[in-house]
Amino acid sequence: MKDAETDTVRGGPAPDGALDEAGHGARDLGFSASEGSGPGAGGEAAPLLSAERVKVVFPGRRGDAEARAVDGVDLDVRPGEIVALVGESGCGKTTLARSLLGLVTPTAGRVTFDGRPLEYASRALKAYRRRAQLVLQDPSGSLNPRHTVYEAVAEGLRIHGHAGDEQAAVADALSRAGLRPPERFFLRHPHELSGGQRQRVVIAGALVLEPELIVADEPVASLDASVRGEILALLLRLRDELGLSALIVTHDLGLAWNIADRVAVMYLGRIVETGDVERVLTAPRHPYTRALLSVLPESETEPVVLTGEPPDPSRVPGGCRFHARCPVLASGEAERAGVADACRTKDLPVLPGSGPAAVACHWAEAVGAEGS
């Protein structure tokens, strides 16, 4: 079943009108989200959402050490800005996103929204979640199979005591999400829709409350390649039309390449590189970012195969937390730069939540200092 409306990623369609099998294909045509004119592009407004030294620690089982899922993170999202939070599975990015929405209470640090610290009383969280909405990865799991599309989208209005015209609000949200005419979808059930249409219903359920921020956790991971570009283009259009801010949580740097204004690369509970997406992804400084980029289909460099698995968050290594898998350290480049010992023993600072590009890497800092 074809989606009701076809969008293309900003600047034009990918080859053959779709992204490739991995969901990429925009930047090689010479355009990018960061080149757009959305409110977040190039602005220096005060953050709408901000994490300040946030830590989330989970207790160990049967005497095991605590798991430091998020281990000191600063991260800002400005009004109208799309930020991609990128990293492997298990790096802590989903836990960080849930803490930003008040679904997980930080062990330390704080989250602020619109300049005010997030409060965790139920009434305060209810008010906050009207302004900040979550879009989950799997639309099939997000939608009750017994509910119609209308009921799914109207649910948020009913929870929050919407006093206006419910039907008009639902129709407007479905229309904005690309399901037109909206009345045609009111009485349908999730099994009657395509995967892309179900994801649009989930997005409409978030939009119906007119939020200022959307946190989308792997929003296209479960979709066919032919539909991914449409959903990414929809998110870009919502940013441009509504001034909507978004935090996109993903393992895929190719997705960040297509949609984000800024990118934050996360490894083992920390942000290791951050900055404008164009700068970070065309001139990555951290060996981990380089490794993630090297395996994209568009990459012209030899793929970097990292040895081993990410360390257990209950056993975070000393020094740079990436050093056990770092190809720069293994190849002797860090030794030649005089930072091998620091890589193994010296911790790195928490990177700023916004501002210029920044990297948490002893070798990158040493090489940068030599070249300056």
Rank of each mutant, 00 (worst) to 15 (best):
T6G: 04
D7K: 14
A14F: 08
A14C: 11
P15I: 10
P15D: 12
L19V: 14
G30R: 11
F31S: 13
S32G: 04
G40I: 03
G42A: 07
L48Y: 07
L49S: 11
A51W: 03
E52S: 06
E52T: 06
R53V: 07
V54Y: 09
V54C: 06
P59I: 02
R68E: 08
R68Y: 07
V70M: 04
D76G: 02
E81A: 04
A84T: 13
E88T: 07
C91P: 07
C91V: 14
G92K: 10
A97H: 13
R98H: 00
L100R: 08
L103N: 12
T105N: 04
T112A: 06
D114V: 07
P117R: 00
K126H: 06
Y128D: 03
R130K: 11
Q133Y: 02
L136M: 09
S140V: 15
G141R: 13
L143C: 15
R146I: 11
R146A: 13
H147A: 15
E151R: 13
V153Y: 00
V153P: 00
A154N: 05
E155Y: 14
I159P: 11
H160M: 08
A173M: 07
G178T: 05
G178S: 04
P182I: 05
P182N: 02
P182S: 06
L187R: 14
P190D: 07
E192D: 11
G196T: 09
Q197N: 11
Q199I: 12
V202F: 13
A204M: 09
A204F: 10
G205Q: 13
L207A: 03
L209K: 01
E210G: 02
E210A: 08
P211T: 01
I214H: 06
P219S: 06
A221G: 08
D224R: 05
R228Y: 11
E230F: 03
I231N: 09
L234N: 13
L236S: 09
L238R: 12
D240W: 11
G243T: 05
G243V: 08
L244K: 10
V249D: 01
H251E: 00
L253I: 08
A260P: 03
V265G: 04
M266H: 03
M266V: 13
G269F: 05
I271T: 04
D276Q: 14
T282W: 03
T282D: 08
T282A: 02
H286P: 04
P287I: 09
P287L: 06
P287G: 04
P287E: 12
S294V: 12
E300W: 08
T301K: 12
V304H: 10
T307Q: 14
G308C: 13
E309N: 14
P310E: 14
D312L: 06
S314D: 00
R315N: 13
V316E: 02
V316R: 04
G318C: 00
C320Y: 04
C326L: 05
P327G: 14
P327I: 11
V328E: 03
A342N: 02
C343K: 02
V350S: 10
P356G: 10
A358L: 04
V359W: 01
A360T: 05
C361P: 01
V367D: 06
G368W: 00
